[in-house]
Design a protein around this nucleic acid. Structure first.
Lengths: 171, 171
DNA sequence: TCAATTTTTTAACCTCGGTTAACGATTAGA
DNA sequence: TCTAATCGTTAACCGAGGTTAAAAAATTGA
């Protein structure tokens, strides 16, 4: 059994319209989502309502709140920036299947390893790079992102305000 | 087979003296380390030599460079702040064993999941909190750290200069 | 114990990015 | 097509944190 088999057996297809949420910060949501089509943003809100964007998601990406999977509440919200199709997979089924099937367990290891590497990379960028360096890096690694994501959202992803990003661009 | 069995079979005990490195940024090092005793810092250096501290490690913690495990070179250095005893485990053996043993594969899933959660937490702090908020949080969650780690190092972990941390403290 | 080293503090000055606000430009809906 | 939102830009002002340097405090080692 591999991940695709698991998805076929336990996954359900979901459709979300642009501007609707898959889940909200604070929700209980023990599902793993695999994006089939669409664009989403995962973001935090602080107590004053200020927004901080964790990541953008495109077809092929997958996402879940590790907090929610393990303790209970989602630490962030997931919003569709475009109409989105995704597969929703109960995490309990994933763990259950992994505990019984070696091939699947190893597929989950691959998945978690690549997730861990992405998070470590982001940690590096936020810790070691200036806003301007993070912008340059994004421009280099994901030049297409600027066609799909507003500058407003990109700024919040880089950890700065839209005003600051506008300033960085024009110099 | 579980992680302890694996460690017994393939792990080697190592001793490092204070101020010596386990590995350096740029090294190839396909090992997983489990700290038995000691205090270490994992840190990045940028091109100008400036230091950014990724994490501190204490007994019971484990560490590896995910970059090095998967592509080749360590993205950071690992330095002993105190005399350290640790167990060194070849990553190839871990993967080999996981591919053959269900119980172990599931133990690795646990390990990676907790690693992913820690990285996600750090991402949150760097993205959403101010330096002062990060300091308050550290003070609350790890009050003992201030006995083991110099303020200099804590500042670099928080993503600010020692001068800035001294200012934050005295207000 | 004393000198050398390291760590922490303080001060002056500077830069980057935040805040607010106003104004175009663009997009989306009716 | 026209109107209302949304988005991006620009400017003025402010504050957090960086830089440099020097001094004070603490630690280390001979």
């Amino acid at each position: 059994m591999n991940l695709n088999d698991l998805i076929k057996e336990f996954g359900t297809n979901q459709h979300y319209e642009k501007k609707t949420h898959v889940f909200l910060q604070g929700d209980e949501d023990q599902f793993l989502y695999v994006i089939q089509e669409g664009v989403l943003k995962a973001y935090y809100n602080d107590v004053e309502g200020k927004e901080y964007i964790k990541s953008f998601l495109f077809s092929g990406d997958n996402i879940a709140s590790t907090q929610a999977l393990n303790q209970g509440k989602c630490s962030f919200s997931l919003l569709c920036l475009e109409d989105t199709r995704l597969i929703k997979l109960p995490y309990s089924k994933v763990r259950e299947a992994a505990s019984k099937n070696l091939e699947l367990a190893n597929a989950i290891i691959e998945l978690l390893m690549s997730f861990a590497m992405k998070k470590e990379q982001r940690e590096y960028e936020l810790l070691c790079l200036s806003a301007e360096q993070r912008y340059e890096k994004l421009l280099k690694n994901s030049p297409n992102i600027f066609q799909q994501i507003t500058q407003n959202n990109i700024a919040r992803y880089l950890g700065i305000t839209p005003v600051a990003l506008s300033r960085i661009k024009h110099k």
